[in-house]
Amino acid sequence: MKTSFIKEELLFQQLATAFENVVIEIVRKETVFVYASKEFVLPILLYAKEKLGYNSFSHLSCVDWIENDEFELVYIIWSPETKINLFVKTRIDRQNPTMENTDMIWRQINTYQREIREMFGIEFPGFVGEKEFILEDWEDVPPMRRDFDTLEYVNDTFFEREGREDKQDVRERIAKRSGEEIPDFAKKYSRE
């Protein structure tokens, strides 16, 4: 049976006519991805909120694509009428990570931006928020970046109780047990 994507198709049409340089993908029912470059994010969010009724902001998250030397920011917004989750994804440079401030659209983005600034080190110029969010006086690499070595930091900073020398990375063992393959990019940053 073929699922009908009537409202998703409608959203696709609306976004495609409004913006030219974006890639739109209907992933599954009620889930639509929009890949845009970083300067189109603010117009898309504004357009979706004001014209299309996507007035609920769900989440802002960040993914560290260290292989491509990029961060990916994902804005998830939702419309109570069409019930579609709209994912606006953008990639930014990893060496000089800056992103436009968007907390004038939804005020709660402010909190997410504070978290991402602290955990990934991404700067949002012109954005007003307390510098410290969860970590206090953190001096190291932002801890959610994949090049931050957690175990090394732990060994340097904290004490360790004797008798826990058997602790080890069990990802490979679990993968073997369930018959899965660990992809290469994950192996590269594995702790073995």
Partner: peptide, 18 residues
């Protein structure tokens, strides 16, 4: 006692009695 499941967490102390 020894960090428990947070043995490699960057933000959790492992040994309270220190």
């Amino acid at each position: 006692i020894n960090g428990g499941m947070y043995w490699d967490s960057y933000n959790t102390i492992k040994l309270l009695d220190k």
